[in-house]
Design a protein around this nucleic acid. Structure first.
Length: 356
DNA sequence: AATCCGGGGCC
DNA sequence: GGCCCAGGATT
């Protein structure tokens, strides 16, 4: 069936034209100034589900702080999370940190250049394997993401649901056939750039597309209908009270989240689920959970924070404690400056901003 | 195969 | 408000 879909698709001409276009039009990106697999790796992890413009300042800060693989391997996790703060999907940072240590342990600090070895590393899946192998090691491996599926679904007029796993495998077979064997690095990056700048999700710029004459969707005017993708479910909404808890010294009581699940190992102001706990029951609930007596103050505001799969509606309350130290290992008492050195999710950075 | 896991920007 | 984005791990 791969042969069928590629029937009458002029692979050689397509390769030549997309590579010529890329040579003339490629975006100047920090991670394109090198082919060091460590830098390529960092960039590919950051770029997962994240736009280029968002990644650039994070990438620059990250390699400034961790210029080589060993400096990252030797860093404490909390510091790595702090550098990642605001970028989201924090398991990416924790998995990357784990994987870099695996490379030091098992591969003498050198990023492996085979699919099997890369695939064993935490956080390195099929896409990132292909991206590292092609971009850093110039191997003709497909690196198929949503971007690539959009481009090829239009080029070849494929209306399979790209949310399905089997569809992704189908595109991987197609790209394995079409990819340039002479310059796979440029080829994969060319498809990325085309998807980001020309073959965009909404209103693609077909009239200036360098491979328009190869595009079956453009030929029949179907580019706006592709790719086909089933909708994600709507997010669930949860109502919390976030507690800004101060002691007599003016320090704050904050909490480190569990090491698994949502926002793992990130810090936050303690949160009370208001569907389960009434406002007047918060002190009793808090004492039972943390062993700390608190007095509630006033509500100082509220905010809404949207995740990919849920929505937090947070009422911000102030509270007071007498304690200067705490027993519960997840709690810490810190001043504002100390807080700024700890990793917080954006929702709680917004809460903290009200303290300045 | 379905679900979980952030955040920002666009329309 | 819905949708998109250089996905992977877990179940």
């Amino acid at each position: 069936m791969i042969k069928d879909i590629l029937q009458n698709f002029n692979i050689e001409a397509f390769q030549k034209e997309i590579l010529n276009w890329y040579q003339e039009n490629k975006r100047a990106l920090p991670w394109r100034e090198t082919s060091d697999p460590y830098y390529i790796w960092i960039s590919e992890i950051m770029l997962q589900q994240t736009k280029v413009d968002t990644v650039i300042p994070y990438f620059n800060r990250f390699i400034d702080k961790y210029p080589d693989l060993y400096s990252l391997a030797n860093a404490p996790e909390e510091e790595v999370l702090k550098v990642w703060e605001g970028l989201g999907f924090y398991s990416r940072a924790r998995n990357l940190h784990t994987a870099v240590r695996e490379v030091v342990e098992n591969y003498d600090g050198k990023v492996p250049d085979t699919k099997d070895e890369l695939g064993k590393l935490k956080g390195v899946g099929p896409y990132t394997q292909g991206a590292i192998l092609s971009i850093a090691f110039n191997q003709p491996e497909p690196a198929v993401d949503g971007n690539v599926m959009r481009v090829f679904s239009r080029l070849l007029l494929i209306n399979d649901d790209i949310a399905r796993a089997r569809t992704k495998k189908y595109f991987e077979q197609i790209v394995a056939e079409v990819i340039s064997k002479e310059d796979p690095s440029s080829f994969n990056q060319a498809i990325m750039d085309l998807g980001a700048t020309i073959c965009t999700p909404k209103s693609p710029a077909c009239l200036i597309c360098p491979v328009q004459e190869h595009c079956r969707a453009f030929e029949v005017g179907a580019q706006a209908e592709l790719p086909v993708k089933t909708k994600a479910k709507k997010q669930k909404s949860i109502h919390y009270a976030a507690l800004i808890i101060r002691n007599q010294e003016g320090k704050y009581l904050i909490e480190k989240r569990p090491e698994e699940g949502l926002l793992a190992n990130m810090y936050q102001f303690p949160m009370v689920p208001l569907e389960e706990v009434k406002l007047e029951d918060i002190p009793a609930w808090f004492y039972k959970k943390y062993g700390v007596q608190l007095q509630m103050g006033v509500q100082s505001g509220d905010l809404k924070h949207v995740f990919s799969h849920l929505i937090w509606n947070i009422d911000i309350h102030s509270a007071e404690v007498n304690d200067t130290e705490v027993k519960d290992s997840s709690l810490r008492i810190v001043d504002l400056e100390e807080m700024k050195n700890l990793p917080f999710p954006v929702s709680h950075l917004r809460i903290r901003k009200g303290l300045e």
